[in-house]
Amino acid sequence: MTYSEETLIAYADGELDAAARAALEAAMAADPQLAQRVARHRALRARVQAAFAPVLEEPLPERLLASVRAAAAGPHAGSVVALQPRARARWSWPEWTAIAASLLAGALLGPPLLRPGAGASLVDTSGGRVVAGGALARALAGQLASSQPAGAPVAIGISFRSRAGAYCRTFSLSEAGGFAGLACHEQNAWRIETLARAEPAPAGNGYRPAASALPPAVAGTVAELIAGEPLDAAAESAARARGWMR
């Protein structure tokens, strides 16, 4: 059997399947000229690889490390929808209305998640408060960080007790254009403390975002409100069992 150059190259590049590989190796054993052709291709690959291998050992230039660490300025600064780390004052109603309106008119209206039939909207502004609604409210009440359903529209991050004694939970909305926020349980509802644009959370692989992965606006509010450490899985489960009552 004669072998095309492309087949020999594919062999040198590790691209032949087991059967083709075995057949070629048997042929090479019987045909030194064929073996020589293959050796040429393998030698070239090894030589090209070797020429660039030392780059891996070079110290990393500081400017590249700096660009990895660089705060994402500019475009990211503009994408925080809501709240800076807050001062003591609660958000006033007009501010909340503006935030909620921008959410409802913007990214949150687009996704299938929020179209009619998919359930209530994620943010409910009725009754003079901004509280979680629909799938967000259900996730905050029932979803544990340790066992997130695959493909869930809402991912729960950390849960903790606030200094005021309320249970609070961070969340991210994977399919709503990427929002993350913090809600605290208050008067039988989840009052939304912070909401900011974020990278979409990956759905369904059990990844649990750490507080450090939250948008700065959310992480700042967590740092401001948290009393002690976040709840571990057992405490989280126990709090859910008590309906998040203090």
Binding site: L60, V68, A198, S212
Partner: peptide, 14 residues
């Protein structure tokens, strides 16, 4: 998340 990406980037820089 961007922080995760930063960590991965450092290992992939070489």
């Amino acid at each position: 998340p961007t922080d995760r990406l930063r960590e991965e980037l450092v290992t992939l820089l070489p």
